[in-house]
């Protein structure tokens, strides 16, 4: 089922030297290169299988072409407690198209014949648990996944994943929030690999970002505990938001605003074009002056 032709060429290699070698984690490689250039990472989220896995693969290549530095692929789950209505609906569409974690890994494996852009999965814990923690880590890295975000698994509960993930070379990326105490910041920052995911608002995905000073302040506090890059997500919806967040963090994560466009254009033939145009506008806003 995955033998269709991919329609996009990867981004030209001259703006991003391809020094990546197979023994490196793509996420580390990309983030350190961006840092060296003084640029910020644009991390774009889409739901795998929304509207189909074929279109997900086309979207990943388009996101890269449009300027995304890291792809975050959502794994559709029946009960996504950390997500707002936009991503909940995307998960329902993903489940309706019959998408499973196994099929997503096959899709990523197929994508790896065309791109080496870092890919992280965002999956709820029960999907990983049902797959088997150790088997998942091995197969994910083998397919070409670089990191894992589990929104309902704080590091306190990550025991069964820690050993297998470290052995396989899969980054476990943890979240911090505006409600996090100093003790939680120290602990979570230390546990998080690849990047630390700072949740910019007290709430669920897709809410509105309005306290950029608070974000700046919290990112600075997190940086005291770790040299790992800090990326900011939840509530980054416009090029202006992206620019403001890029100013205070190492990476900008955009999810619901992209997923909303996937929902609107999933059936009208303009999916790739509309998502690409939006991501280009985000990337343009993030360029250093």
């Amino acid at each position: 089922m995955l033998n269709f032709e991919l329609t996009r060429e990867p981004r030209a290699t001259n703006d991003k030297p391809e020094e990546w070698t197979e023994d490196m984690n793509r996420l580390d490689h990309t983030l350190s290169q961006l840092k060296a250039k003084g640029e910020k990472a644009l991390i774009t989220y889409i739901m795998a299988g929304d509207p189909s896995l074929q279109e997900t693969e086309q979207l990943v290549l388009e996101l890269e072409h449009a300027g995304a530095d890291v792809i975050e692929l959502g794994v559709p789950f029946s009960d996504p407690i950390a997500d707002g209505p936009v991503i909940q609906k995307a998960a329902e569409r993903g489940l309706r198209s019959g998408t499973s974690l196994r099929m997503i890994l096959e899709s990523v494996r197929h994508l790896r014949t065309n791109t080496q852009i870092p890919i992280v999965l965002m999956a709820y814990y029960n999907n990983i648990h049902a797959f088997g923690e150790a088997e998942f880590c091995r197969k994910a890295v083998d397919a070409g996944i670089d990191g894992l975000i589990v929104p309902d698994m704080p590091p306190d509960e990550a025991g069964p994943l820690r050993g297998p993930a470290d052995e396989a070379g899969l980054h476990l990326i943890f979240l911090l929030a505006p409600t996090s105490t100093a003790a939680r910041r120290a602990y979570v920052a230390k546990e998080s690999g690849g990047f630390v995911y700072y949740v910019s608002i007290t709430g669920i995905t897709g809410a509105k970002l309005n306290d950029i000073a608070g974000v700046r302040d919290n990112v600075a506090k997190i940086r005291k505990h770790t040299k790992t890059p800090v990326a900011v997500g939840f509530g980054v919806a416009t090029p202006d938001d992206a620019a403001r967040v890029a100013d205070v963090a190492d990476g900008v994560i955009v999810g619901s605003a992209i997923v909303r466009r996937v929902g609107e254009h999933g059936q009208d033939g303009r999916l790739i074009q509309e998502v690409g145009a939006f991501v280009r506008s985000l990337k343009a806003a993030m360029q250093p002056a």
Binding site: I81, P154, D156, L175, L176, V199
Partner: peptide, 20 residues
């Protein structure tokens, strides 16, 4: 003290709720 009844229980929640 981790909220475990044998292997069951625990605290599988978004980080935002952990302090609460």
């Amino acid at each position: 003290r981790h909220g475990r009844f044998g292997p069951y229980g625990g605290r599988y929640v978004p980080e935002t709720l952990m302090p609460a």
